[in-house]
Structures are given as structure tokens and as C-alpha cells.
Write a protein that binds this DNA or RNA. Structure first.
Lengths: 196, 196
DNA sequence: TCATTCACTGACCAAATGGTAGAGAACGGT
DNA sequence: ACCGTTCTCTACCATTTGGTCAGTGAATGA
């Protein structure tokens, strides 16, 4: 049923737990128990908890990169590209919310791993900024602060994946429908900021 | 210099640490050391760490309530009310980002304290929803999903206060200017969603 | 003046934490 | 049959964690 290697299984489980419960709230013993192995097996593959976190962050970074690159390959220039990317990111947020949770966890101010993720995402960020600025110069997008636009989109998508309790308090159950609704809302915002 | 009672000082320091470093990453010993007192003193005022967290959440909830109510008293109906509230919340995010961080920390899925905060905020949420719906019915705001609108605003403001590292990665230093910029962006979004 | 309450502390403690050392098992290559 | 490698385990360990207990000294009130 599970044809993953132990190392891969540890990585997956750690991503899930770090991303939802947090790094500090995750003990190696608990992680091992969930996997049906001993803590020392984890420490064999990842010599320390910090190294494990680094590996988790690296893997997550790669997942994000492939997701985003897939979207950008499919989509054409202009508004279509933005829409395709947002759709793909929402799909990721729905399928693997723990990845977005990890992002939130790691980007805590002062986190040493924040830099690690930043470095990984830098080329993608630069690419997005370049894309937006080029579209603006070409007149297909109106002038706006590319960084702020990207940050708004980021906040929204991470929020969708992680603020389940808040949503619930607001009477928004985490259904597929509400996700679609929030996606539409973000697209509307981006459209009004970029196109008209 | 510091005319606060020990109990109040503990509450403040705990709010700061829980809100920025997280609950699990905060040890009572470290908290006490920062305050120049002994851990047992903390446990004298708050019989357990969980009780301390509950007290922190209660205090934060009260702070939010007074902030929001102050804003609503000052402002008139219609768009002015929304703008006043957003401005007040951004000021709070700038002055006490740890409060927003605490919100994020506590609203983790499965958190037992999430419910506590939810209960406290419920009347305010209901009030906001009522306000929006009434304005819509009066024709001053166009029809929209009040919950989604509030959630978007929430995500943005919490993001402003907590996603410092991400902002920095995007080339947005956490200056006053960038805050103003993001506030304008949120107001623009809300305006387009509610007014035109 | 004496008893009581309040705020705080030092000495402990059991449990959990991340981590080390070393002993097998499983395995393919020679 | 033997060896080296890879992987997982049992047995420990030092430290840190939240928390208990028994105080101490200073106010406070009768």
C-alpha cells in the first residue's frame, strides 16, 4: 500500500506535522509513533531535528516551484497567466494545506529557516515581478506596485489554507464552494488592480 | 519606570512571546528570566501555562474589542465606518503586531484556545456582519458576501502584522510607508467590493 | 501585638525532549 | 561462506519542561 521509502515517509509526515501543529509542537517521538517506527530511525536519516526541518523546507520549496512553473508553462501571457497561477495555487492549498501552513510557520520573524526558504523562492519571486512589470510596460496591465500585488495574493492564499478556524468563526465552513468563492474574490481583486 | 503589577507584566510579556515566538516555543523559565523574576512567581499568578494562555487570549480579545468599538463610535455609517475601522486596525497592527500574531497562533486548526477567542469575538463579528448587511439593504453598499469580505480584510491585516519575513523577501521593508501602501490597497479592494 | 493574608522564592520532581552508542538484521557482491 | 553497507532497533543520557511543596518576609487588620 505504501511504496515510499522510510526517509520519504518521514519527510511527508514531518511536513504535515510541522505545517499544522508547528515545529516546536512536534516531537520526534510522536512523529516516529505515527509512522510506526522508532525515533532513532528518524535520527538515522536526518541527524538532527533542525536538519529534518531544513529538508522539509527544501522539499516544500521544490513542490512550490514545480507547481508554479507548471502553471506558467500552461498559461499564455497577460491576464491568463495570472488566472492560471492563482487557480493552480488554490488547488495546492486545497490538496496540501500543510504546505501553506509550513510557509506560515517558517516565515515567523526571526526564524533561521526563513532565510532558507527565501533563498529558494527568490528566483520565482523575481520571475513573477519581472512578468508583472513587463506586462505593465507592454500596457496589458496598468501600473501598480508588483510587490504589493504579489504579497496580497500570497496573504490571501495562505490565509485560505491556514485560517480554517477563523473562517469557521465567520460562518464559512471549509467547503469546496467557499474556496471557489474566495478564489473568485482574489481574482476580482487582482483583475481590478491589474487590468481594470 | 514600570508601575505595572507583576501580574500585568507577566501577561504583557507572555502576549509578546506567545504572539511572536509561539506558545510551544515559549518556556516559563525564559519568560521569567526576561522579567527578572522566578518561574514560581508566574505559576503563583497563573496556576498553569494553559491558564496563562487563556488569560492572554482573554486580554487580547478585550484589546481587540475596545479597539474596534472605539473605531465604530467615531465613524458614521456607510463607507466612512469601514474606512475608520480599517485605519484603526492598521494602527493596532503597527503598534502591537504581537496581538495579531497571537491571533494567528491561537487560530491554529485544532487549537483548544481557538474556541475561547471565537466566543469572545462572536458579538463583534455578528455586529460587523449586521452592519454590512444593513448597508447593503439600504443600497449604500452593493450586494456581496459579508463573511468573505470580512475574512479578506482579516487575512490582509493579520498578514501585514505577521508576514514580515515574506514581505522582506518580496522587497518590502516593514516601513511606515509600506504599511500605508498596503492599507490603501485593502481600502481600494473593499471599496471596489462594497461601493463600486 | 499577634495572626493572617499576600507576593514571592529555593529546592525538588517526574516526564518528555533531542541526541549518542552500539548491537543486530537484511542484503548484494565476491 | 564471508564481508561491508544500509537500515533499524534497544538501551541510555543530559537537559529542559511544566509543576509541587514548603517555606520567607512584608503588609494588613483585629
Amino acid at each position: 500500500m505504501n511504496d515510499l521509502s522510510t526517509k520519504e515517509r518521514v519527510l511527508l509526515a514531518a511536513t504535515a506535522s510541522f505545517g499544522t501543529n508547528g515545529y516546536d509542537a512536534t516531537s520526534l517521538d510522536a512523529l516516529a509513533r505515527d509512522l510506526g517506527i522508532r525515533k532513532q530511525t528518524i535520527l538515522y536519516h536526518f541527524p538532527s531535528k533542525e536538519v529534518l526541518l531544513a529538508a522539509v523546507v527544501d522539499q516544500a520549496g521544490q513542490d512550490f516551484r514545480t507547481t508554479i512553473e507548471d502553471a506558467l508553462v500552461d498559461a499564455g501571457p497577460g491576464w491568463d497567466g495570472v488566472e492560471a497561477l492563482v487557480r493552480r495555487m488554490f488547488r495546492l492549498a486545497l490538496a496540501r494545506p500543510e504546505l501553506l501552513g509550513l510557509l506560515r510557520e517558517v516565515s515567523r520573524p526571526g526564524s533561521s529557516t526563513a532565510h532558507r526558504l527565501t533563498t529558494q523562492m527568490e528566483p520565482l519571486i523575481a520571475r513573477g515581478r519581472l512578468f508583472l512589470k513587463r506586462e505593465m510596460r507592454a500596457g496589458r496591465f496598468q501600473q501598480a506596485d508588483a510587490n504589493i500585488v504579489m504579497l496580497s495574493a500570497y496573504s490571501t492564499i495562505v490565509g485560505v489554507a491556514t485560517e480554517v478556524e477563523v473562517s469557521r468563526a465567520l460562518g464559512i465552513e471549509p467547503t469546496l464552494r467557499s474556496m471557489v468563492h474566495r478564489r473568485q474574490e482574489l481574482l476580482r481583486f487582482l483583475h481590478s488592480a491589474l487590468v481594470a
